[in-house]
Design a protein around this nucleic acid. Structure first.
Lengths: 157, 157
DNA sequence: TTGAGGTAGATGCAAACGCATGAACATCGG
DNA sequence: CCGATGTTCATGCGTTTGCATCTACCTCAA
C-alpha cells in the first residue's frame, strides 16, 4: 500500500535528501588532495569573489558563505595577509570594506578551481544525466531564490 | 543566442546551485530561535541517531556528519556528558563504540525536530510545488547514492 | 602462536569558530 | 545641526575544530 506523504513530509524528506547529498559529496571533495594551498572554506571565499566583477562588501560576501560575520572577517584578514585578497575602505561608506581578489588570488582561485571542478564533474557526472543536472540546477535555484523571509522577521518581532 | 554548456559545465553549475541553496537555507534555519537547547550540529547527530534502530558506530555516524573524526568523537562525548547519548563498548569489536540516544536524547531530538521541521516545511514549501519536492528528493538521492568512489581511491595510490 | 600491518576511536595542541561587545560611521527626526 | 538609533566591521574570550599522533584492538599470514 502506498501511503500518502503530507506536504510537510515531502518538504522535510526532500530537504533531508539534499542535506545528505551535500554531506556525502562534500566529504568526497574534501578527501581530494587539492587543498594543500587553500582550504575548502578559503576557496569558497576566493570563488565567490571571483564571480563578482568589482569589489564586494564583507556583509554581502557573508550571505553566500556559511560562517559567522566575525569568522569571515578574520578569514578574509588571513587571506589578505597572504596577499590573495585586497581590502580597501569603501569610499561611499566609511564603515564598509571593499573586497577583491588580487592577481595572486585570482590565479590561486583558477588553479584550485580547475582541479576541484574536475572532481565535481566526475562525481556529479557519474550520478546524473545532463537533463537531471539541468533539473537539479533549476530546482535548487528556485529553492534558494524564494523569499519567505519577510514573514520570518515579522514573526520574530 | 543559446550557448551550449558542456557536460562539465552542467555538472559544476548544478553543484554550485545546490551549494547556494544549502547555504541560503542553512542560514535561515540557523537564524531561527530554536537552537537554545542543542546546536544545529548537535541536532544533526541526535537526528542521525534517531533514524537508526539500534546503536551505531562512531565511524558510521561520521559518514553522515560533516565533521572530522576527532571533532565528532568529542561532540559525542559532550552529548554523553549531558545525558543525551549513550556510549557503550562494542561487544563484537573491542575498539568500537556503540552509540544510541538515551530517553532524554530522544525527547530532545523530538522537541527540537518538531520545531525545526516547521521551518523546513515553511521554507521549502514556499519555494517548491509538491511535484518539485519529489523531483528534488529523487535527484539528490541519486546524487548521494552514486559511487565513483573506487576510482578516486585507486587514483590516489 | 606470534608478530606485522591495519582499523577504531581518543587525546595533545595550535588554529579557527561563535557569541557578545566595541568602535566607527551612517541615517534620520527634531 | 545634533543627538538617538541603526548598521558595518573588528576584537576579546571561551569553546570547538582539525591535524597529527597515540593507544587499544582486530586480522591474518608464517
Amino acid at each position: 500500500m502506498m501511503t500518502a506523504r503530507t506536504r510537510g513530509h515531502l518538504a522535510n524528506d526532500s530537504w533531508e535528501a539534499l542535506l545528505t547529498a551535500h554531506a556525502v559529496l562534500m566529504k568526497r571533495f574534501a578527501a581530494a588532495p587539492i587543498w594543500d594551498e587553500v582550504s575548502m572554506r578559503e576557496y569558497d571565499v576566493l570563488y565567490t569573489l571571483s564571480k563578482h566583477e568589482g569589489p564586494i562588501r564583507l556583509g554581502e560576501l557573508n550571505r553566500s558563505v556559511l560562517l559567522s560575520q566575525p569568522a569571515l572577517s578574520r578569514l578574509v584578514e588571513r587571506l589578505a595577509d597572504r596577499g590573495l585578497v585586497e581590502r580597501a575602505p569603501d569610499p561611499a561608506d566609511g564603515r564598509g570594506v571593499r573586497l577583491a581578489l588580487t592577481e595572486a588570488g585570482r590565479e590561486q582561485q583558477r588553479r584550485t578551481g580547475r582541479r576541484h571542478a574536475a572532481d565535481v564533474t566526475r562525481e556529479v557526472g557519474a550520478a546524473l544525466t545532463e537533463d537531471e543536472m539541468r533539473q537539479l540546477e533549476a530546482l535548487t535555484s528556485k529553492l534558494a531564490g524564494s523569499t519567505v523571509h519577510r514573514e520570518i522577521e515579522e514573526a520574530a518581532t
